[in-house]
Design a protein around this nucleic acid. Structure first.
Length: 270
DNA sequence: CCGACAACCTGACGGC
DNA sequence: TGCCGTCAGGTTGTCG
């Protein structure tokens, strides 16, 4: 269930098994996810040594000593499993290290993707080239967000889901951050005053950092053979909590915008 | 350029 | 128990 914190947690879990290791086997068990697997994926990855892992927005990066970078996206239902007991119909990509560790990318809905890019060209990869700053990086400043929102009439929620504005937020953390910043999801983005933008930047950083922290505590769980992750949904302030109490004492409401649920509190979010 | 919406695909869950 | 409708954390393309 992957937004930025889940991908970050996944990458850290993968790194514990993959970093510095050589791949002895790479198997694609179907031809495609959202799009076809790279035709040379097996050939390029088999025998390669993993030189590092990383993350950009909701994408995971696996660098090799052949100057390739495998870029994966988990879509809505993607999940890496470490040393699964057995493979099921949704284990679409399986890789093995020289130590005999086995990693499987399972994705029932197949909204995910796997691509292979020259490491030097990763930043220029189309999906990345158009992307806004990393919300936890130095480029995500009050000034930068204010500039990106200036003149935009669209509701702030839609703007924050736009990866060109800021990269890595999804529906859950946008709802959470807007609640923390006490900003109504429908508020036109271009009209938000500076102090509110300051609150918003702070809230985005805070909620993501807290979620990564929480995800980090599940790394051991992640490495369990069954690969199940806990998502700490009990920490959500508003997401999935329609009718429950907002921290401010108001009641969490649900509305639908552009076909997606928005959870918010009309009392404190203005 | 902007914004709304459908499409992609499967599984989980609630209601009857 | 079983069937059906609804919904789900994302991205992309189309249409007005």
């Amino acid at each position: 269930m992957p937004e930025l914190p889940e991908v970050e947690t996944t990458v850290r879990g993968l790194a514990s098994v993959l970093d510095g290791r050589r791949l002895t086997r790479v198997e694609t068990r179907r031809a495609d996810l959202r799009r076809a697997f790279p035709p040379d994926l097996r050939q390029r990855m088999t025998g390669a040594r993993i030189t590092g892992l990383g993350r950009r927005a909701k994408y995971g990066l696996v660098h090799t000593d052949r100057d390739d970078t495998m870029i994966f996206h988990l879509g809505m239902s993607g999940k890496w499993r470490i040393d699964p007991d057995e493979l099921g119909p949704h284990d679409h990509l399986v890789i093995e290290t020289e130590e005999g560790r086995r990693l499987s990318l399972a994705d029932p809905r197949r909204f995910g993707s796997v691509d292979l890019v020259a490491t030097a060209a990763v930043d220029a990869w189309p999906a990345f080239a158009a992307m806004g700053p990393e919300p936890l990086g130095p480029g995500f400043t009050v000034a930068a967000l204010a500039a990106a929102l200036a003149g935009r009439a669209a509701p702030i929620k839609a703007m924050l889901l736009d990866q060109r504005i800021v990269a890595g937020l999804g529906n859950i953390y946008v709802c959470e951050a807007l609640n923390m910043a006490r900003i109504a999801p429908t508020r036109p983005a271009g009209g938000i005053a500076r102090p509110r933008i300051e609150r918003l930047v702070e809230a985005i950083r805070e909620v993501l950092a807290a979620a990564i922290e929480a995800g980090g505590s599940t790394l051991r769980d992640y490495a369990r053979p069954d690969g199940e992750l806990g998502y700490f949904s009990h920490q959500f302030r508003v997401y999935g909590r329609e009718g429950e109490a907002c921290p401010c004492g108001g009641t969490v409401q649900r509305r639908v915008d552009a076909g997606r649920s928005t959870f918010h509190c009309a009392r404190c979010q203005r």
